[in-house]
Design a binder for these strands. Structure first.
Lengths: 199, 199
DNA sequence: TTATTTTAGATACTATAGTCATCTAAAATT
DNA sequence: AATTTTAGATGACTATAGTATCTAAAATAA
């Protein structure tokens, strides 16, 4: 044994905690592009093998470390009384996320194919459903009761539209502002959702 | 000189042609995931540096080799007389593209950040405009003249919607069928485009 | 307490991306 | 024909991802 001579060998939850903490600190110091498996392992005083045993790549590690060590982003259930404002409100937390993680990381995460897990960063969501589905479903239910939409006529392509447009905005602009949200909702999402009434 | 003893040193267009041909053949043999810069260079009897001098990565090389050596996908200007059918027709060529390149390659190209160049595969498009813009603009002009839309009220987010939805469908399903096109147009794009009339 | 099982840790390895310095052939210019 | 310029050829190099294998510590079962 060459390094770490005095410390006990860590295991299980304790080790996992230390690994994710190292990943989070490494990300803060280096940024997403310079975040490497080697770097994380070195900071945690272990080796890549230990990381790969748990997570398949740095995108997944960062997501998990964010859940443990990142700032808590408030994602309370929304109920403004009308669909349009519910949607805008629902889409605000990702802005905070971009502020915390930065453009480079968010684009990196999307490029690394974990864009659809971005909503999963806000809370622990159980089951196999996409996080966006879990969040939008109660909003649409209430809108349906008020007669604003007809859920029976809305499929996954339609209900996932807010997430799809958030992601494509970030990819094309490297940015996400409040105005983007409002435009997405007013110019695209609302017309599509309303269309569910005339079928 | 160790290899290639008998052939003249190639240059300029001739060399570029050979490199792209090697890339296309290599892609046909190995598939996108196993396509490597080394492999392409070896097949062209040269080295990676020669490739990197021209193109930054394998995604861009494949796109360029497709333009030279891939099958020609018909992308005639569309004019069915109504917006809805123009849109569906406009979106059909990508299906052929997926048939030729395969799921792995298309997802790879999108992951490698060149998804927005997919429409550029159908023809030589000049200028800095996104290819999708060039294709959809005349369609929207005619629709505007017929009173089906109001172009003044449509921004880039709206006009790029067909391309965004094609890409997100491929990413989420790894597939693109005629039914997808029809649903995209009828359930999403048309309601959004029509909405430009009431502002 | 001892034997067994599990899993962390260390080392070495392969594959690929991408860069760099240098050499040299071929084209362009004088 | 001689010289200069351009750009292709080459091998070496670094960085990182990801894997395979072996050793040893900790947990557990006996």
């Amino acid at each position: 044994m060459t390094k770490n001579e005095h410390s006990k060998r860590r295991r299980g939850k304790e080790l996992e905690h230390d690994l994710l903490e190292a990943a989070w600190n490494e990300f803060q110091d280096k940024g997403y592009d310079k975040l490497t498996m080697e770097g994380i392992a070195a900071r945690a005083e272990t080796t890549k093998t230990v990381l790969y045993r748990r997570w398949p790549n740095k995108a997944i590690i960062l997501i998990n470390s964010f859940k443990e060590f990142g700032p808590k982003v408030n994602m309370d259930p929304v109920d403004t009384g009308n669909l349009r404002d519910d949607l805008v409100t629902m889409m605000e937390p990702p802005i905070q996320l971009f502020e915390v993680l930065g453009k480079e990381a968010v684009q990196g995460l999307i490029a690394d194919q974990v864009g659809d897990q971005i909503y999963g960063l806000f809370e622990h969501i159980s089951g196999d459903e996409a996080p966006i589905t879990k969040i939008i479903t109660p909003i649409l239910h209430r809108a349906d009761e008020r007669g604003e939409v007809k859920m029976d006529n809305m499929d996954a392509r339609v209900t996932s539209l807010p997430a799809v447009l958030l992601i494509s905005t970030v990819l094309s602009q490297g940015m996400l502002t409040k105005k983007d949200l409002v435009d997405i909702v007013d110019d695209v999402v609302m017309p599509v959702f309303k269309h569910s009434l005339d079928k």
